[in-house]
Simulated assay, not measured.
Amino acid sequence: MAKSDPTLAQIAAQFTHHDIEKSSGGYLIINRRTSNPVARLRPIPDTDRFELFYWSNVKGRWTTFGNMGRMKLMLTSAHEIVENDPMFRVPRTR
């Protein structure tokens, strides 16, 4: 029997219009229509906060969201940003 992941369940409960997948110490937020990852969340240890990443086609990797470096976001804030910021609708190129 697979061990339950409370963080995955918490993220899935917030991002109801997306699929969530565990990935290398973080979680991918996946567009259900296209099956493309649109964002990545990494839990910040010993807090209820997350670091939000977007895919940078320029850098070819996930990059921290925000002008001031690492942001410690509540899950509701991360959800609001992913839903409303056009940056998270840019298709990822491989």
Rank of each mutant, 00 (worst) to 15 (best):
F53S: 11
G25F: 02
N67E: 14
M1H: 06
T16G: 04
P91H: 01
H17C: 07
R92K: 11
R94C: 09
A12W: 04
A2W: 10
D48N: 08
W62E: 09
A13M: 10
P6G: 01
S77F: 07
V82F: 01
H18P: 08
T34H: 02
D46A: 10
P45K: 10
R42P: 05
H18W: 08
I11M: 04
S24K: 12
N36C: 09
H18T: 13
R33E: 02
Y54M: 02
N31P: 03
P45T: 05
H18A: 08
L75C: 10
I20E: 15
I81G: 01
T64M: 13
Y27G: 00
E80D: 13
P6V: 12
I81T: 05
T93I: 15
P37T: 05
T63S: 15
A78I: 04
T64I: 10
V90Y: 00
M1G: 14
D5Y: 06
L75F: 11
S23G: 06
R94V: 12
F88M: 00
V90G: 03
M74Q: 09
R32G: 01
W55H: 03
F88D: 00
M68I: 10
R49Q: 14
I11E: 09
P45Y: 10
G60C: 01
D48W: 05
F65A: 06
N31C: 10
D5T: 07
P6C: 05
I44K: 07
K3R: 15
K72P: 10
K59M: 15
P91V: 04
V38P: 01
A2N: 13
N31I: 02
D85W: 03
V90F: 05
K72R: 14
K3V: 14
T7E: 14
R92P: 05
R92F: 02
D85L: 05
M74R: 11
N36L: 14
Y54V: 00
H17Q: 07
P37D: 00
T16H: 13
N84H: 12
R40H: 01
R42Y: 09
F53H: 14
G69M: 06
Q14H: 07
T76L: 07
D85E: 07
P43K: 08
A2E: 08
P45D: 02
L73Q: 12
S77A: 14
L28Y: 03
T63G: 11
K72T: 10
P43W: 09
S77L: 13
N67D: 12
G60W: 03
K22C: 08
E21T: 12
P6Y: 04
L28H: 01
L73C: 04
P91K: 03
E21C: 15
M71S: 08
L75P: 02
